[in-house]
Design a binder for these strands. Structure first.
Lengths: 127, 127
DNA sequence: TTGACACTTGCGCAACTATGCAAGTATAAT
DNA sequence: ATTATACTTGCATAGTTGCGCAAGTGTCAA
C-alpha cells in the first residue's frame, strides 16, 4: 500500500509546494557554504583572460612576460590574474632569477577545463 | 642536429621573450572567441544560487515555486536565474498548467558539475 | 653605486551582476 | 465577469570584477 500524499495544500500557506518532491530535494540539499565553494571554483575559470592563461600553461610553463606577449595583454593584467590563480591554487609560481615561472597545479580542475574546452569546440563546429 | 635558439634577445626589443617556448604556445593558442565561450559556460556555474538550483534539479524536476521554497529565496530571484540557465541551455522549461517545470538539460555539463561538487566536498573534509 | 629589468600591488573606475520591488502576463478557480 | 495563483520582467541599486596607471620590490649588470 502506497501513501497518497501527492499534494496537500494547507490552509493559510503562503505558496504551493509539492511536499513529496521537495522533501527528497531538501534531504540531499547542499549547504550554502558548499555552494559558494563550488561557485568560487568555477568563477576562476569564468574569465576569457584566465581561460587563455590556463590553456597556454597547459602547453608549457611560462613566465609573466611570456604570457603577456603570447596573449597580447599588459604585464599588469597578467600579474593581477596570476595572483587570483595562485590564491585559488590553480597555478604554482617558481621564482628563477628575476622571472617568475608559472605552472598548472596538477589537479583534476585541469581535466575539467580541458573537457569543457573540447566540448565548446565541438559545439561550435557546425556553425 | 638540434637548433640552438634558446634565447636570442634582439636589440631594441621591448621585453624579453623566450621564443622557443612561446612559439609552441602560440601555435596551439585558442582564439579570443573560444576563450569567451568557455568562460561564459563556467560563468553560469559561478554563482552560489545557480549552483544550488542545479544541484536541486539534479535530484528532481521542480517548478519555480518549489525552488524558491527549497532554497529559501524569492520567486523573483529564482525566475531571474532560470532565465539565464535557460539561455545558456543548462535547463529546459516545460509549462504544465500554470506552473513551469524545470529540468536539467542532459549534457556533460551535468557531469562537470557533479565532478566538481564531489571534488570540493572531498577537499573540505579534513578541515 | 646606479640603472635596467621582471614582476607586484594599491587605488580608482568603468563595466557587470544579483536580486528586490512593483507591474505585467497567462492560467485556473469562483 | 472577478479574483487568485504561478511566474516573468523592467528598473534601480548595492556589490563585485578586470585592469590601467604609477609607485614599489627584488634581482642582475655595469
Amino acid at each position: 500500500m502506497r501513501l497518497m500524499a501527492l499534494q496537500v495544500r494547507e490552509a493559510g500557506e503562503a505558496r504551493y509546494v509539492d511536499r513529496e518532491r521537495t522533501a527528497a530535494v531538501i534531504a540531499s540539499m547542499i549547504g550554502r557554504a558548499t555552494a559558494t565553494d563550488v561557485a568560487d571554483l568555477f568563477r576562476v575559470l569564468a574569465d576569457p583572460t584566465r581561460v587563455s592563461i590556463i590553456h597556454a600553461l597547459s602547453v608549457s610553463e611560462l613566465c609573466n612576460g611570456d604570457l603577456a606577449a603570447v596573449l597580447e595583454i599588459s604585464e599588469s593584467a597578467v600579474s593581477h590574474q596570476m595572483r587570483e590563480l595562485r590564491l585559488m591554487k590553480l597555478v604554482t609560481a617558481e621564482k628563477r632569477g628575476r622571472m617568475v615561472y608559472y605552472r598548472l597545479t596538477d589537479t583534476h580542475i585541469r581535466h575539467i577545463f580541458e573537457d569543457t574546452l573540447r566540448h565548446v569546440q565541438e559545439d561550435s563546429r557546425p556553425r
